[in-house]
Nucleic acid binder design. Structure first.
Lengths: 220, 220
DNA sequence: TAGATTGTTAATCGATTAACAATC
DNA sequence: TAGATTGTTAATCGATTAACAATC
């Protein structure tokens, strides 16, 4: 019944924020929330909050607000968090190992079931009880296990090749940490974590704020 | 002369992408690029590319295109990459250590000069030749060194406190990896890397594409 | 009932795209 | 000069905000 209208990218990016805040509300045993509460917390207008939920059919009750538990469930369902995802991590360097050890994804149903690297010194070592296997064994592993998402934490120069291999093996989700724009086929989803882009954006913001402050303190 | 018109968030996010691609072009010794080339590479329209650069005054030459070297320099300057940034990393857990060891930021002028943690077992160990110091020594360190950016890689529950401390010490830039929305003062810039939000977005995209494929293969 | 707050349409705002004159 | 490609304005598109009727 929903999913028909186009969902803007901006809205998609807000959904996890709603989800996260609603989770904390639930932990705090708060059962009810208004669009105004939500808007203040996320720094947007209450109009937008209502418009966002209306987009998916509207989950609230006039004069009351939204029920935290059911709203959380609805958004979780929209986001596809009502299932688990198996992930294979490729590239067991510093970042890859840190991601693999990061436990908070598991709670949301994202579990790393295989770790791969091409460096022979790493093969056989364990991360969180998972053996690091050689990259050549990826194909075999994917055939024997259901892998939903490939986490790419290899150096940038290998990223395109790894992506191609992963796509050829039929994996439809890619979480890419290499700082390259990967061209994926239409039926494959990709999410990028571009650390250096984030730092550049931070530098830009800092520069702009500094200029503004200086201009204010030194008027002509 | 520039910086007067408002720069949209969407445009700010494109600047690092231009910058990165121009860097690779320069490495490949390609000295000239057209808005069409750039647009195809980044998956946007050439109109937008020209509009983007026009926003900052226009860096091209009619009938020729853009000079890679000078465009790179201009964008670097806009982004504030024409200087170096000293960073203090707070939270030397898995993710923190991985970030500290990640060498690619240094090349762009972002250098980690101090690492802090509250865990006594970590104090005195080294990451890339930098001693891990106790969090209590942060204040002293900031007084003796120029710290531009604080990298927050502590568990989410401590993030708000760490942010407050860092802001009180006069640091104007925060790179936050904890999955909370931090309320920073107006003169402080913050960039968030929200890994779990990224994963949720990926889950959403995968779900949507799956539905589309199923609908196509099983029409009523 | 009166008060509160959503659902929903319409208005506004801003970003993207189209178009073409300018000019190298 | 002719061809190419930007600079720049105008048109379009889409997202956000405003407003208020609906209704709990």
């Amino acid at each position: 019944m929903n999913c028909e209208k186009k969902v803007s990218n901006a809205l998609i990016r807000r959904l996890p924020k709603y989800y996260r805040y609603l989770s904390t509300l639930q932990q705090m045993r708060i059962s009810r929330v208004s669009s105004k509460d939500l808007s203040q917390r996320l720094g947007i207008t209450s109009s937008q909050v209502r418009q966002d939920f209306f987009h998916f059919g509207g989950f609230g009750l006039q004069g009351y607000g939204y029920d935290v538990a059911s709203l959380l469930q609805e958004i979780g369902c929209i986001l596809g968090l009502d299932r688990t995802y198996n992930m294979a991590l490729i590239g067991a360097g510093n970042l890859g190992q840190a991601i693999a050890k990061h436990s908070s994804f598991e709670k949301r149903g994202f579990q790393i079931i295989g770790v791969f690297d091409a460096n022979p010194h790493l093969i056989g070592k364990q991360i969180k009880g998972i053996d690091i296997q050689h990259y050549d064994q990826l194909e075999d592993f994917v055939k024997r296990h259901s892998v939903d998402i490939a986490v790419i934490t290899v150096p940038r120069i290998y990223a395109q090749d790894v992506m191609q291999r992963v796509v050829d093996l039929g994996i439809k989700g890619i979480w890419n940490f290499a700082s390259v724009e990967l061209d994926v086929p239409e039926d494959v989803s990709i999410e990028n974590i571009h650390l250096s882009e984030s730092l550049m954006t931070l530098a830009y913001e800092m520069k702009r704020k500094k200029e503004k402050t200086q201009k204010r303190s030194k008027p002509l």
